[in-house]
Nucleic acid binder design. Structure first.
Length: 764
DNA sequence: CTAGGGTTAG
């Protein structure tokens, strides 16, 4: 939730008297004097021969007349000004304004009030305020126009100030006025103010009024109170499209997407036609649910109702297709757009960022990441200025891609544009540096943040935990508590994982208990996963398996794979086989698990089991384990596969790996000896020391193409094998380089022959 | 009343 701006909205609002005296002022606009004004679009034109005739004027003709100083009936100003609004032409409005003053029509309250409205809509609030201040008389409509202007120009706090001024001046709010203040309170997330206004609306029995009810519904939704939002919605006597849309988007804001779609269906069956707002809200619900089927149905409804050219609707459809993995459909929409908003770009980048995480295979994840970086480049070249949404999304992409160089460029750009002051952008930046292994830069950004949210703290604690800096992680956790920020479930996962890395059993169990007792946070599977991991690392397998039995959850794939790797490391193969077979039941198509299992059977030469596992793999139609790595150097991504000669430097790179291997052998590196394997097994098990695993190639390439002390950053699609893990430790010792490898399960930071994962991250 | 953003581990 955004923090409240420091605006004086304090003190109770005294509405009582006004409402008691004039309760009807809420519902009737008679007093405003507007209802009786009828305006006309035809003018009496005086021809050159002196005869006169009434006829319609078009906008340009009328403007010309006004520029020439001809007289115009004051009732004609309003349609003319309306036209200025429609054309969003502040300059035309100023011409008309000048004419109004010259002809003395500024004495006309109706016309002048409309001018306030015009300037507000044309986003020149200074002029709106000036016109308002010069009014000799003010009625509720002029006050309301000004308030509404501030709300629409993102100054809700000023709108509330005007509301207070209005009450002081003794004017009576209408239901429309109250609706605007309610909207302002919801923009400010001021539930207190909202509740006061709600109370008054109940007192004067207008809480069932449509526009009040709509505003109340969205106010409660924005402040996170879905129940009250529903109550407000149900109370509305005559529900219109806006009421339904408010209820639907309330569900979206509060994470109950399926309920929102139920509302949408109900609305359709009530015979109410959705508008562009309803459609975008409903599409966004499909998006969170990743419900492509429902989304396609709504898409056809969009076409039927003629909204397919509406930009927000198109953006929502594009984002839906993108998130559901229909990249080509999304791209077609993207390329076919004549008008594009920044949101279109942002949706495209954010969508690709999400695919990276959702992707089943690493190749498409990698392609999405590259595509997102390309779109960002195009956006920059197109001259459109990125905003805070763009920065946070692209930083997430850089994190997933371990693209430190791009990340640093974005960092610089966000400083220049002033968006680094945004908490979300800064947090995304902290996270980017963490994920790229630059813990120093991450903490520098973190320290320089002026305010931090729970997520910022958690991200930094997680960073320290990942880098094996347990003390700093725990210290930061204390700092956070002292700062009065309440940790959540996610924070505790990071804290427990920090303890687990350092083997601090007592501390971990202490935090676990404190989480349950002091913070009333229910442990989830992830917390147990950390504890299990801790016992596994220490070789306390009994306790690890004990926890598996004790917890209320069926262990997930991650817990089983932790157990497999741990049992293997600690030589408890029987338990390892058991865990691996359980893992295979959960993920029968996971080649990595089969390879782990195969390697275990081979190491104890249980050849019967080896052929049984091979048979299982054939039945599942699983082939060789595809493994590859990539490294980003100067905005260019270089990817490597073993035995792949497609890279222009592949020959040099291979030779360099061979020479490195010789050099580290003299430091004590021993390649894993090949067992008596068939060719087939040797290929599948990744044991063969003669083959070049992709991370070795990528690292060699990095060493050849970066300056001497530069860290090397590599990303790998599957877990590292032990041989390579050992090899890279020696390389970091040999070359005195920092080598960071992010594989599919773990961040490895190799410094001086040691790895931050404590050697527990090499699963294969 | 609408579309786009940041956190965890194994």
């Amino acid at each position: 939730m955004a923090s409240l701006p420091s605006v004086a909205v304090s003190g109770n609002i005294k509405l009582d008297q006004d409402f008691r005296k004039h309760p009807t002022s809420f519902i009737s606009s008679e007093k405003s004097g507007i209802a009786n004004v009828s305006y006309q679009k035809s003018q009496t034109i005086v021809n050159s021969d002196g005869s006169s005739e009434p006829r319609s004027l078009d906008f340009r003709e009328a403007l010309v007349m006004i520029r020439e100083g001809s007289k115009v009936e004051s009732s004609y100003y309003v349609p003319l000004l309306q036209e200025c609004i429609d054309r969003n032409s502040a300059s035309d409005a100023q011409v008309v304004h000048g004419h109004i003053i010259k002809t003395g029509s500024h004495q006309d309250l109706f016309v002048t009030t409309f001018l306030v409205n015009v300037y507000a809509k044309c986003r020149i609030m200074e002029n709106a305020r000036k016109v308002f201040d010069k009014l000799s008389r003010r009625n509720v409509v002029s006050w309301t126009a000004l308030m509404s202007g501030y709300v629409h120009n993102s100054r809700p706090e000023l709108s509330i100030r005007v509301f207070l001024e209005m009450l002081e001046a003794g004017a009576y709010p209408t239901n429309y006025t109250l609706g605007i203040v309610l909207n302002a309170s919801s923009t400010l997330y001021s539930i207190e103010l909202g509740k006061q206004l709600h109370a008054y609306s109940i007192k004067y029995q207008i809480d069932f009024d449509t526009s009040i009810g709509n505003s109340l519904c969205s106010l409660y939704s924005k402040c996170g109170n879905l129940e009250s939002a529903f109550k407000a919605f149900k109370k509305i006597k005559e529900k219109n499209v806006i009421s339904w849309t408010s209820a639907i988007s309330a569900c979206g804001d509060n994470g109950d997407a399926s309920k929102g779609l139920a509302f949408f269906t109900e609305m359709l069956s009530e015979g109410i036609e959705p508008n562009e707002y309803t459609l975008t809200s409903a599409l966004s619900l499909c998006c969170t649910m990743l419900s492509l089927g429902a989304g396609i149905q709504i898409h056809s409804l969009v076409i039927k109702l003629g909204y397919e050219l509406n930009l927000p609707v198109r953006n929502a459809i594009m984002y839906l297709y993108l998130k559901c993995g229909m990249v080509n459909e999304a791209r077609k929409l993207f390329n076919g757009m004549e008008a594009m908003s920044l949101i279109t770009w942002n949706a495209m980048i954010a969508g690709h960022a999400q695919i990276i995480d959702l992707a089943e295979d690493d190749l498409s994840a990698y392609q999405s990441g590259t595509e997102a970086l390309n779109i960002f480049l195009k956006l920059n070249r197109s001259g459109v200025k990125p905003d805070l949404f763009t920065f946070s999304s692209i930083l997430t992409v850089c994190s997933s891609m371990v693209a430190l160089e791009q990340g640093e460029q974005v960092h610089a750009q966000s400083i220049k544009s002033g968006f680094l002051s945004d908490i979300v952008v800064a947090t995304a930046l902290v996270n980017m540096y963490n994920k790229c292994g630059s813990i120093e830069k991450a903490s520098k950004v973190f320290i320089e943040m002026s305010t931090r949210t729970l997520i910022s703290w958690t991200s930094m604690i997680a960073g320290f935990a990942q880098h094996g800096r347990t003390q700093q992680a725990l210290q930061l956790f204390e700092d956070m508590r002292i700062a009065g920020v309440r940790p959540n479930q996610v924070t505790f996962v990071s804290v427990l994982s920090a303890c687990s890395h350092a083997g601090m059993v007592n501390e971990a169990l202490g935090y676990f208990e404190s989480m349950k007792k002091d913070y009333r946070i229910k442990p989830v599977m992830d917390h147990y996963a950390c504890l299990i991991d801790m016992f596994v690392r220490l070789g306390r397998l009994d306790e690890a398996f004990g926890l598996v039995k004790k917890m209320d959850f069926e262990p997930n794939e991650f817990i089983w794979s932790t157990l497999v790797a741990g049992c293997r490391t600690h030589g408890n193969l029987d338990r390892g086989f058991y865990a691996a077979e359980r893992l295979l039941k959960l993920k029968p198509k996971d080649t990595e698990t089969y390879v782990m299992l195969l390697n275990m059977y081979i190491s104890v030469e249980r050849w019967k089991d080896v052929s049984r596992v091979r048979k299982m793999m054939k039945e599942e139609k699983l082939g060789k384990l595809e493994e590859w790595s990539w490294i980003t150097i100067k905005d260019k991504v270089h990817s490597f596969k073993p035995n792949d000669k497609s890279h222009p430097q592949s020959e040099d790179v291979q030779k360099y790996v061979e020479s490195l291997t010789d050099q580290v052998k003299s430091l004590g590196y021993k390649a894993v000896e090949s067992l008596e394997l068939t060719d087939e097994d040797a290929e599948t098990t990744l044991f063969s020391s003669t083959s070049f695993h992709s991370e070795k190639l990528a690292i060699a390439f990095g060493l050849l193409n970066t300056p001497n002390a530069a860290p090397i950053r590599v990303i790998k699609n599957i877990s590292m094998c032990r041989d390579c893990h050992n090899f890279v430790k020696f390389i970091s010792l040999l070359t005195s380089r920092e080598i960071i490898i992010r594989d599919s399960k773990c961040l490895h930071k190799f410094v001086n022959g040691k790895c931050s994962c404590g050697d527990f991250g090499a699963l294969l």
